[in-house]
Design a binder for these strands. Structure first.
Lengths: 68, 68
DNA sequence: TTCATAATCACAATATAGTGGGATTTGCAT
DNA sequence: ATGCAAATCCCACTATATTGTGATTATGAA
């Protein structure tokens, strides 16, 4: 969970937007966002997708490669 | 939400495992899994990741490309 | 340091995800 | 059509995610 939080935080900073702004744009509570960024939350898919979409990010799912 | 459900369902079938088996292996309830596969749920990230991991799938997040 | 803004925290209330149990339906064999 | 297993439905309960408010604590700039 820490990973996605960091991705969101870094992308947000790269776009120079505050937590409050991002939360508002994504339609989620500020508390929810701060916890997610810190990896202290188990957010619903809806919330995650909303935040990622707002940040211009997308998810894709693929078969795990077993490269070392 | 429909999309991830279909991905899970197709991957599960490709591996020839039943919903009950997958649910048990992933540590989630059968009802939860059936709803997710049908796109009638808004699952938590924990549940989604557990299912994907069990299926040998992984998620990655990238900047949305604006190709047409 | 001082000031302003951003981020985190703490609390309580509401919404909803996750669950099991049992009934029902669907799908696919023979 | 019959039988079996898989999938779905229904219901009620529990767990927890989400929320707003207000206070507190960083962070950074002048």
């Amino acid at each position: 969970m820490k990973e996605i939080g960091n991705i969101i935080k870094e992308r947000r900073k790269a776009l120079s937007v505050t937590q409050r702004e991002l939360a508002a744009l994504a339609g989620v509570g500020i508390n929810t966002l701060t916890k997610i960024e810190r990896g202290e939350a188990n957010p619903s898919l809806k919330v995650v997708l909303s935040i990622l979409h707002t940040l211009g990010l997308e998810i894709d799912i693929k078969i795990k490669s077993n490269k070392l």
